[in-house]
Computed example of a mutant assay.
Amino acid sequence: MDRLNKTLMAVWTAAGFAYLLLPLIFVVWMSFFSNEIPYLPPQGYTLDWYAAAFTRGRFAESFMFSLYVALIATALGLAVSVPATIALRHARSRLAGSIVQLLTAPLIVPTIVIGAGIYVTLVMFEIATSWPVVGSLWALGLAHVLMTIPWCVRLLLANLASVDGSIEEAAASLGASPLATLFKVTLPLIWSGVVAAGLFSFVVSFGNIELSLFLVAPGSTTLPIAILQYLEWKLDPTVAAVSVAQIALIAAGLLIADRYVKLTRVV
């Protein structure tokens, strides 16, 4: 009976993974179709759609815009999260746990709700001050920072949990100043976590679409939005090729991040 239950569980697990991966497999397969209008079975296979994807100005510009926003969000997110998590680790206050919950709170709120709230706030701020903030690059970047901070905090806290605090205490007892201990002991010990947090933050920002839909300015689109807009008017393997390139970039970032900090510890 136990063997039958294990077999059934394995079958259901395999079926679940197959159900989740089937759309991804189909998108990858479709990106190699030679016919412009996708249908089964395809006439043949080609790599021309990948060349077309990178030569189209819309996708190339949106890719660079997404890259720029993701780099800004990653840098600012790390600048906030690294000192915050180190301070929280050494905090003796009862508020430390509440602060951690506050920093990770965006994870429990749907991204589209956050995007709508930020947009309404920016509109009200612009009406009150006459500052052109709606659709600005820095507003979009700061909004993406809001999404990167929770993941940075979780990854860094998971990494700091494995650091032996006696090493820092030993450095301090030998005369090292707090700054020297931070830069010569603590940061080198958690450097793998910092790298993983940066890579994961980049992935979260680069692939975000819900938040960006509310905050991008006319004429400036991120890559996920460019894909969505392209699908409104045309469906050919070009968009599949762009999607595969985006999936490959995100998957590479996640695999590298998992190399430094096991993502199963934080997700």
Rank of each mutant, 00 (worst) to 15 (best):
M1A: 05
D2G: 10
T7A: 06
M9L: 13
A10R: 06
L20N: 08
L24K: 15
F26Y: 10
V27N: 03
F32H: 03
S34W: 00
P38G: 03
P42N: 08
Q43Y: 11
G44Y: 10
A51H: 09
A53C: 11
A53D: 02
F54E: 10
R58I: 15
A60K: 07
A60L: 12
S62M: 05
L67F: 07
L67K: 07
V69F: 02
A70P: 00
A70H: 02
T74L: 01
L76V: 11
L78G: 02
A79T: 12
S81D: 14
S81P: 14
T85Y: 11
T85D: 11
A87V: 14
R89A: 03
R89D: 09
R92M: 15
R92F: 12
L95R: 12
I99N: 12
L102Q: 12
L107V: 15
V109Q: 14
V109D: 12
V113I: 14
I118L: 15
I118G: 14
L122H: 13
V123G: 10
V123M: 13
M124W: 13
E126C: 12
A128C: 10
P132H: 14
L137T: 12
W138E: 10
L140G: 00
G141K: 00
L142A: 12
A143S: 15
V145Q: 00
L146K: 08
M147H: 02
I149Y: 04
P150D: 08
V153G: 08
L155R: 01
L155A: 02
V163E: 03
V163P: 01
D164A: 08
L174W: 07
G175P: 01
A176E: 02
L179K: 07
P188L: 04
V194R: 01
A197N: 00
S205E: 10
S205I: 03
F206D: 00
F206S: 14
G207A: 11
N208V: 04
N208M: 06
V216F: 04
P224K: 02
I225Q: 03
I225N: 01
A226V: 02
I227E: 00
I227F: 01
Q229L: 08
W233D: 03
K234W: 00
L235E: 02
A241C: 11
A241R: 05
A245H: 09
I247S: 10
A252T: 15
G253P: 08
A257T: 10
Y260F: 14
R265S: 08
V266F: 09
